[in-house]
Nucleic acid binder design. Structure first.
Lengths: 216, 216
DNA sequence: ATATAAATGTTAAATTATTGTCAACAATTA
DNA sequence: TAATTGTTGACAATAATTTAACATTTATAT
């Protein structure tokens, strides 16, 4: 069976569909048409159908989509039906915030350990998750399955730690450091560059201001 | 003078150019060609030139781009040459992390206040930034200029607080809550949906695993 | 001075993504 | 049981984005 490549644009949208479907389930909606969903999500119905049909026909003509079924199908597509062990490197505020966010657990992301170099932080616990010394990183990964490593450390340390992770066989990194990690192709990196996000907002503010000035 | 609309794709890339140029300055590079930059950034040179020429011709034939000049021009485009006052609503770990991240300040984003409902947090200070009771939000905004409001609160509270902000005239929201804020068109919202980012990573992990299985 | 190489800015082509349309068919109603 | 309505999935049309090509300008070396 041959797989066609799914475009990044589609993947970007999938989690949002998933979120809306979850909300629909919570509010007791059992079925929904693409056009109803499209008006709630403010995208075209055509796009919803096109996106979903990349993965198969989940709907039924004359009926629409069964919300629970579609929700669970998207979960499978996103790999949320499996557990992922996640470690967090950097037990600062951001690391804490992520470790504390229990909703991740519900989606199958199990936070198993934190690492830090600061002796004051080492040994403490966040929820049930212990803060270990960074020096034990390799030993820990050898003993425990780690599916995702989260980098919440300054960019100066990030590249080096990323390489250590890759050397231990970690294949997926969730990177919050403000730098690009140049890693081998088979290592998946998902970047969360907060400063870039803030700059985009700043651009939009500036561009609104400019167009307002020109109108005068 | 008429303005052509700049596409979102271009804006998404601008901060990354800015970051690379900053690094080049730090390492003492004075000039750079689009092709040299392209190989460092792993994008096409054509795209770099095309992107930059949306805003004007910053380079010189036969020479390339002057790094410092281009850096400052992109700063202007992104509005980083102006100060932006930023408040943070939600003084939990994520709010703390953002308030503590001093590099934002360097780009002109001045964190001026935090707000929370938890009495234990109120009155404390993060760096020099005071945590105020959320009930004083409106009064604060009336007295102080607020350019950007950051939402680091649970989704249940986010929509309501967002409306309060808009009612006070706040025009730009940096939203970390896992929900879409449905606000008037003239309010700028930049979303940082961490769970969606993590799901995209999960998708990619899953899809690699699948293709590996099929090869067997 | 002049020739050559380098590199931009710009136009055109190719690719990718989004939107619109409609036949087919399920669900519902008469 | 037949007719009607609603809605998908597929495909065609359009729009947007990216890449490539190239003419032109400038820097640099001789």
């Amino acid at each position: 069976m041959e797989e066609k490549e799914i475009s990044k644009a589609v993947i970007r949208r999938l989690p949002r569909y998933y979120r809306y479907l979850g909300e629909l389930i919570e509010s007791g909606v059992e079925r929904i048409s693409s056009s109803e969903l499209s008006s709630r999500m403010k995208v075209t119905a055509s796009q919803i159908r096109q996106d979903l049909n990349n993965f198969g026909g989940f709907g039924q003509q004359g009926y629409g989509y069964n919300v629970k079924f579609l929700y669970s199908e998207i979960a499978k597509i996103l790999g949320l039906d499996k557990k992922h062990n996640v470690i967090i490197i950097g037990a600062g505020n951001l690391g804490h915030a992520i470790a504390n966010y229990v909703a991740f657990e519900k989606r199958g992301f199990i936070m198993t350990a934190l690492f830090d170099i600061n002796p004051e932080r080492i040994g403490k616990k966040i929820r049930d998750i212990e803060v270990l010394p960074l020096s034990e990183l390799e030993a820990y990964i050898k003993e425990n399955e780690v599916d995702i490593a989260t980098l919440t450390i300054p960019k100066t340390a990030a590249k080096e730690v990323a390489e250590r992770l890759v050397n231990c066989g970690v294949k997926a990194i969730w990177n919050f450091a403000h730098t690009d990690l140049n890693l081998p192709e088979d290592v998946l990196v998902e970047n969360v560059h907060l400063s870039e996000s803030l700059m985009r907002l700043s651009y939009n503010i500036t561009s609104v201001e400019k167009s307002r000035e020109e109108q005068k």
